[in-house]
Simulated assay, not measured.
Amino acid sequence: MNDNLWGYQPSSGYTEGADLTGYSVEATDGSIGKVDKHSDEVGSAFLVVDIGVWIFGKDVLLPAGTVRGIDTEARKVFVDLTKDQIKDSPEFDKHKHTGDPVYHEQIAGYYGNFRLM
């Protein structure tokens, strides 16, 4: 992953302005959910992923730096995390935490533990 967890990796294939809403999200060990919302705001890019298939009604916030690849034809986003790492992420409330810098710091600390060197 790049040093900026809140930006898409250059190798991810992300194109600025692309709409990833509805794309399936693939963890390193299988499918985990669908993109409900995304932001490509510089320094604060993220995906909100509905993992309700795994835990009823649960959404998680994934920093854009966790995205390792995007397949636009198959409408899939591949992330450098396991399903358990995603499921065990800090509780997320999309009405409260989406733009909260304190929550973003908490998320960065959590996902920063899994960064590949």
Results as ranks from 00 to 15, higher is better:
86 I>R: 00
36 D>Y: 12
33 G>Y: 05
18 A>R: 08
42 V>A: 14
5 L>S: 06
8 Y>M: 01
88 D>T: 06
20 L>I: 12
104 H>Q: 07
98 T>D: 05
100 D>G: 00
16 E>G: 14
30 G>W: 10
111 Y>F: 14
16 E>K: 11
21 T>N: 04
86 I>Y: 00
71 D>Q: 04
27 A>R: 09
36 D>T: 10
66 T>G: 07
22 G>D: 00
50 D>T: 11
3 D>G: 10
64 A>D: 05
40 D>E: 07
55 I>Y: 10
97 H>E: 07
100 D>F: 02
91 E>S: 08
13 G>M: 08
66 T>R: 15
1 M>R: 02
59 D>P: 09
107 I>D: 08
52 G>E: 12
39 S>M: 12
14 Y>M: 03
12 S>W: 00
105 E>N: 08
14 Y>R: 01
18 A>F: 04
81 L>C: 03
12 S>T: 04
108 A>I: 01
35 V>G: 07
69 G>C: 03
106 Q>Y: 09
10 P>L: 09
104 H>D: 01
55 I>S: 10
107 I>N: 08
100 D>A: 00
15 T>R: 14
94 K>S: 13
20 L>S: 10
9 Q>P: 04
1 M>H: 05
74 A>T: 11
80 D>G: 13
22 G>R: 00
111 Y>T: 00
22 G>T: 01
4 N>D: 15
3 D>R: 12
33 G>I: 10
8 Y>R: 00
83 K>A: 11
73 E>Q: 15
12 S>F: 03
76 K>A: 04
68 R>H: 05
57 G>W: 03
65 G>E: 04
108 A>R: 12
90 P>E: 06
75 R>E: 15
101 P>F: 13
117 M>Q: 15
5 L>D: 02
10 P>Q: 08
33 G>N: 08
69 G>Q: 07
108 A>H: 04
21 T>G: 08
105 E>Y: 12
91 E>T: 08
57 G>Y: 03
69 G>L: 05
30 G>M: 05
27 A>K: 07
79 V>W: 08
27 A>E: 10
68 R>I: 13
4 N>E: 15
73 E>S: 15
55 I>N: 11
90 P>C: 02
77 V>W: 03
21 T>K: 11
46 F>E: 06
22 G>Y: 01
57 G>M: 00
94 K>F: 09
28 T>L: 12
29 D>Y: 00
36 D>I: 02
87 K>Q: 14
109 G>M: 07
90 P>M: 02
63 P>M: 02
33 G>W: 07
60 V>K: 05
64 A>N: 10
54 W>I: 11
28 T>Q: 10
42 V>K: 13
12 S>E: 03
111 Y>L: 07
98 T>F: 02
46 F>N: 13
85 Q>G: 06
30 G>C: 05
53 V>H: 12
57 G>N: 09
12 S>C: 01
15 T>L: 14
62 L>C: 07
116 L>A: 14
1 M>E: 05
1 M>G: 09
47 L>V: 06
85 Q>W: 03
83 K>C: 07
97 H>A: 04
78 F>P: 02
59 D>G: 13
44 S>I: 10
17 G>W: 03
43 G>P: 06
9 Q>C: 11
91 E>P: 01
96 K>H: 13
112 G>D: 06
9 Q>H: 12
60 V>M: 03
